[in-house]
Amino acid sequence: MKRIGRLKVKKIRQNVYHYVLLIFFFLIFISPIVLMILSSFKEDEIQIIKDMSSIQAFLPNGPMGFENYVNVFQRMNFFKFFTNSVIITVSTIVVGICFNSMFAYALAKLEFKAKHILLPAMIALIIVPGETLSIPLLLLVNKMGLIDTYAVQIIPFVAEPFFIFLFYQFFKELPKEIMEAAIIDGSSYFGIYRRIILPLSKPVFASVIIFNALGRWGDIMWPVLVTRGEDVRPLPLAMQALFTINRNNWGDIFAFATMATLPILLLFLLFQKQFIRSIASTGVKG
């Protein structure tokens, strides 16, 4: 009886420590985000700057309201840019996972001669920093007449050595026996990929999708080079319009940033269980 009591006390004490630590990190991670969101509602521009030096930065202060949001919508076609970013990100991901996983499947599961050259070459390509290639790439897409389209923001990114490698690692671990059984049943190699490998590989897809989405959603350097008009302009570039050389309207900037961030955060909140479970069984597993 006494022993159980002691255990219980110990357990509670442990939980308290645990929560204290959690709350400590919680504050560190949430504060700047609270600052972003709260500032987006502060209507007095000068108030925002003044608040930055004190705890007021994280508290409502002065007139609060939706004025900054109204401003953003008045100053630009936010929905258009948001849609552009969604189109670019989603298309890159969708086409990308098809292309990358097919190539990875061929490398991992099929016998063909070139494989022994392609695999190491591909691994070497992982470390090429994309930024170093942007200028030759610009000259190239210009020759192809792709400037100022969605395509130019999608196509060059649908094959990504790093993602191919992630898929490859995962596929490699799948037991050979499944394939052999399917072959005996008369299935084609593509059929095996589609009917057997893909259903088993949902986890690795989840991690590639997240990796890819984060990279594409925030990219700014490439759109600067290859887009011209507003028709295909993505969010991060559109946001630059709020930075004027001599006077930044912080309220508008934070309102924009909040609107660009919250949808993704919401997605994560909704799907985090599936997401974590899926990574748990990918190629990066313990």
């Binding site: 210009n142 400037i147 100022d148 700014i220 080079l225 011209r228 507003e230 630059q240 050389i245």
Partner: peptide, 21 residues
């Protein structure tokens, strides 16, 4: 008319010059 964000405007103008646009 087409309008551009100021910070990156000249980079975009140069890129357009390069592509004759």
């Amino acid at each position: 008319q087409t309008t551009f964000p100021g910070d990156t405007y000249h980079d975009q103008v140069h890129a357009a010059g390069l592509s004759k646009g």
